[in-house]
């Protein structure tokens, strides 16, 4: 593909096109305008974007997304139970989670997933991208939490990105 006039970020173009259609409605003129915008905007802003994320197996993102949506619903129920149980004091903890993912995009997705799923918020990534600091609101066993996150989410993301 021609480097100057091609699509430097196909995923970005795809997202732009669909967000445009959702905003403007799907009449013929808007579809053409959306296609034009999806082609031109990534070209104009090319210099500001870091490297294109390398998603090896995009179709594996679908079951992952479904699992995460399910876990988000469970997460709010857990938070609800915690908030409404007036007698018991929660047992918060900071946990260092050793990352096996190396792709920045993958780490971002894992951190966002952790923030949206039961009892945990990702607080920070170490400078060398090896350790993720997680704040858990009510946890008794750190090791169990680490293994749980690894089995549930990181393995699935490893398959997508490697």
């Amino acid at each position: 593909m021609n480097a100057r006039f091609g699509l430097p970020h196909p995923l970005l173009s795809f997202a732009l096109f669909f967000v445009w259609l959702m905003l403007a409605g799907a009449s013929a003129g808007y579809v053409v305008l959306g296609l034009l915008l999806a082609w031109i905007l990534p070209l104009v802003t090319r210099g500001f974007w870091p490297d294109t994320p390398r998603i090896k197996k995009p179709w594996k993102l679908l079951p992952y997304t479904l699992k995460v949506i399910l876990d988000i619903i469970i997460a709010s129920l857990t938070v609800a139970r915690l908030v409404l149980s007036f007698r018991r004091k929660p047992q918060p903890a900071f946990v260092c989670y050793p990352l096996t993912l190396t792709d920045p995009m993958g780490i971002t997705m894992l951190a966002s997933t952790i923030s949206l799923t039961p009892g945990t918020v990702s607080a920070d990534v170490s400078d060398d991208h090896r350790v993720l600091l997680i704040h858990a609101v009510d946890v008794s066993d750190d090791q169990e939490l680490i293994e749980d996150i690894h089995d549930r989410y990181e393995k699935a993301l490893l398959e997508v990105f490697q």
Partner: peptide, 15 residues
């Protein structure tokens, strides 16, 4: 009503 900032962070982000 949660006790400190980090635990309070959980309510708004999820619920």
């Amino acid at each position: 009503r949660l006790p400190d900032f980090y635990t309070r962070l959980h309510g708004p982000t999820k619920a």
